[in-house]
Amino acid sequence: MTGVLIQLAVPLVLILAAVGGRVAHHHRGAHIERRRADVAHITLSPRPTFPGLDEPRHGELVVDSVVMGADYIRQVVGAWRNVVGGEIRSFTPVLDQARAESSLRMLEAANAKGAVGVINVRFEAVRINNNASELLSYGTLVY
C-alpha cells in the first residue's frame, strides 16, 4: 500500500509543479507588461550614440541580470527535442521572458537614477545548469 502511494505521489508532485510553473509563467508575463508602461519613456538602443541624447552628460554603467529556469514539463519536452532535433519551442518563451525581465530591471534602474536613455545595450545569456540560464543586460546611461 505504501509503495503504491509513493508511486502515485512522485508523478503527482511533478504534475503539480508543472501546472504551477505554467500558471506562474503567465503571471510573470502579465507583471512584466504592467511594469513596462512605467519605463516606456526611456530610450533603449544598441547603438553607441543616439541622436538627441548626445548633449554633454555624465555617462554611467548599468548592469542587471536574472537567472531563470524552465519547469519540469518543459525540461522533459526539451530533452526529447535534443533527441529528434529542431527548435525547442518549450524553452523559447522561458528565455524570452527572462530577457524581458532582465532588460526591464535595467530600465527600472535607469529610471530610478533619472536617466532618459540606455545606449550601447548588450544582452548576454549564460548557461548555469541543464535547466537554468542567466540573462544579462547592460548599457550606458544618458541623462
Partner: peptide
C-alpha cells in the same frame, strides 16, 4: 527548478 521561474539565489 521543477516549477520553473526565477532562481533568486543564483
Amino acid at each position: 527548478n521543477m516549477a520553473g521561474g526565477e532562481l533568486k539565489a543564483y
